[in-house]
Design a protein around this nucleic acid. Sequence first.
DNA 1: TTGACAGGTTCCGAAAGGGAACTTACCCAT
DNA 2: ATGGGTAAGTTCCCTTTCGGAACCTGTCAA
Lengths: 147, 147
Amino acid sequence: MKWDELKDQSCPVARGLSVIGDRWTLMVLRDCFLGIRRFEAMQARLGITRHVLADRLRKLEADGVLRREAYQERPTRYEYRLTEKGKALYPVLVALIGWAEDHVPPEGETAITLVSRETGERIEPVLTDARTGRPITHRDVTAVRNA
Amino acid sequence: MKWDELKDQSCPVARGLSVIGDRWTLMVLRDCFLGIRRFEAMQARLGITRHVLADRLRKLEADGVLRREAYQERPTRYEYRLTEKGKALYPVLVALIGWAEDHVPPEGETAITLVSRETGERIEPVLTDARTGRPITHRDVTAVRNA
DNA sequence: TTGACAGGTTCCGAAAGGGAACTTACCCAT
DNA sequence: ATGGGTAAGTTCCCTTTCGGAACCTGTCAA
């Protein structure tokens, strides 16, 4: 299978990965959530090559995850902002952070901590079922194939 | 930056992606969660080339996400199973599924639905803070850099 | 001895990625 | 007007990775 055939698959994992499954894409989105909006800043922070960054931003815009907005004229310069669709990816990023914090120990110390904007306290992300309020693990949940 | 330098970074997103940031890795893990354990079966389901699949399985084993277990001798054949570290990735996969279901519409119909193993009812994954029980969105949470 | 099965490995050409320099278009200070 | 700085890309070249298909190994069964 080729990579671009993924988006047409019926599996939601495949469809999701067709957008964010790339090596750099979630790193770009991490920076977006941190408020980084400009090409130069992203390139400097990520260490990604300019060519690849330009390509990823184009794709993310095409997929509706980012939107490009002119922040000055003459010369026209654009910055990249998360759309609602992009902001909806936050739980994916947080789930990944939670896993990495628990299972992929850093060399030195962890750079960021997620805190409540309101109380300033550290948060502990856990995925729950909105209906029952109970945590979701692979033991409680099973996937059924739709007929 | 090269890809394999990522695992040494202080950012948990980078560390997480150093393990599962690859194009195919989460697809492989999806199959693992569905109970697929053998090379041939994965290769047939994923359409990934055998070479890349062998490589990914090796890396996932080296990272402690999968463990290889002999299921027969003469000739020795191995199957791949999720470790606890691997099982802990379930929320990441579910968060991705949730996002894709809401924001990346399929061509036809969605192949799988997550249901409670107990009640059989459809679940609605939502990321919450274990302390307060409240949903986590980018609006409620902010990242602070550790000094 | 031929074939099937399972889990790989090997080979090749094609596509993607890394690194660095170049381009465009403007502003500002000398 | 000349040179330097800023920002967002693009272009070039070379290396790495990927996709596709064939081949290998060990065993059993017909």
